[in-house]
Amino acid sequence: MIDRGQILAEEGAPDNGPLYLRIRDVLADAIAAGRLPKGALLLEGPVAGLFASTRTPVRQAFALLEAAGTIRRFDGRGFLVGQGRGGPKRVALTAEMLGFGEEAPGLRKAPAWEAIYESLEREMVHLSVFGRYRINEVELARARGVGRQVARDALTRLEALGIVEKDERMRWTLVPLDAERMRDLHDIRVALEPIALTQAAPFIPPVERRAMTERLEEALAVYPVLSVEAMDGLETDLHITCLGYCPNRELLIALRRARFMLNVSKHIIGVSHRMPADEPFIAEHLAVFRALDVDDAARAAETLRHHIAVSLPKVIGRVAELRDAHRPDMPAYATPVAR
């Protein structure tokens, strides 16, 4: 069995590389060694479970494996190992198949907060549209059926995105999402994302860039028949994965809080808000990738700048519609803060 003791260190750790590349390598090794047989069905959820990761790095790993011809799409959900025309083999994936052995020394235990995080983030984003709220950590833990430390860890993750903050008395507070804040966050993105893309462009692997372009083309052809997860994946490809190749780590840290605006769209479009009649960003993303394809980083950066700038009125409009058409479901752990 291969030694993967460090395979799942924190995502993006510089000494190990991006998590999706490590997942790709493990899957490629397992396929080459025959531990994953030809025709085996690979789904994002089960693979993410084995790696104790979110689905995003698994989706990115699948894209690279598909581009390399290691796995293929079929008339169904997921990917099949190898090439050919045979149907899927529904094989139960195990840690041993991935080369970890029965004890799975390379797999980390999933942090407990991950089990509640996605739904909590959505709830917080929706509630932030309606103003500022004080968040009771004890009540949150009780409402979610977890320990207080788990609730605190989830809130700390939200704090890193600027969704919640601590007041002068160290109490958790939900930051209101108003038009002024959205403009401030967009100003950061307009200023910094084009710079990050210019610096990242030489380091984006061509095979990965082509896979992203193909996903955009396929999505544009079938819109609006797209899941929220698929839309989020397309946003992630450009604004997180591509920019993640920027060698200036301080620049990426400065952008981290502004990425909150991507979460706003993810939790509103197609969830509490109807899918727009006209696709909201796919063609604009394609224009960025077309410029990257011909090594015109300057045009790609300017196209990205325009894309972010014109997206602001769309997001403000969706948030305003949500505020006008809905009333918040008040969770037991949240208390409105008087203005």
Rank of each mutant, 00 (worst) to 15 (best):
H239K: 11
S119E: 15
H267P: 02
A201K: 04
V264I: 15
E165K: 07
L98Q: 05
G99W: 10
L80S: 02
R259M: 09
S265Y: 10
R171F: 10
D324A: 15
R256T: 01
A67C: 01
R183Y: 03
L27E: 09
V319F: 05
S119G: 09
P276T: 08
R274H: 07
E10A: 04
Y333E: 03
R22L: 07
A9Q: 11
T198W: 06
S227Q: 11
F281Y: 15
H239Y: 14
V91M: 05
I282S: 03
M212L: 00
L8G: 01
C242K: 07
I195Y: 01
D15S: 11
K89D: 14
R108T: 09
T241S: 07
E121C: 08
G86F: 08
G17C: 06
Q83H: 07
V175S: 05
L41D: 06
T70E: 02
R299G: 00
K38F: 00
M330D: 10
M212E: 08
T213R: 14
R189K: 14
E217K: 15
Y117G: 02
F100H: 12
A219V: 11
T241Q: 06
T335P: 03
R77H: 12
A283Q: 14
I195C: 02
G145P: 11
Q199K: 14
E180F: 00
R305S: 03
R22P: 00
R55L: 10
G45L: 14
R257K: 15
I282R: 01
G233F: 06
H186L: 04
A297Q: 12
R108N: 08
E217A: 12
F51A: 00
P276Y: 00
A201T: 09
I23A: 05
R122I: 10
A201N: 02
A63G: 09
D295E: 15
P202D: 05
L36W: 08
R157M: 06
Q6P: 04
R339I: 01
M231P: 06
H273L: 12
A48K: 02
L322P: 03
I2W: 13
D3G: 08
A201G: 08
R339K: 07
L161E: 15
E279M: 03
M231T: 04
K266H: 13
P57W: 06
A68Y: 06
A92V: 14
L185M: 12
K166A: 02
D329P: 10
V58C: 08
L226P: 01
R90I: 12
H186G: 09
G82W: 12
G145C: 10
A300R: 10
D187E: 14
L238W: 07
L185D: 01
E217F: 03
I253C: 05
Q149R: 13
L251Y: 05
E235M: 13
M261R: 08
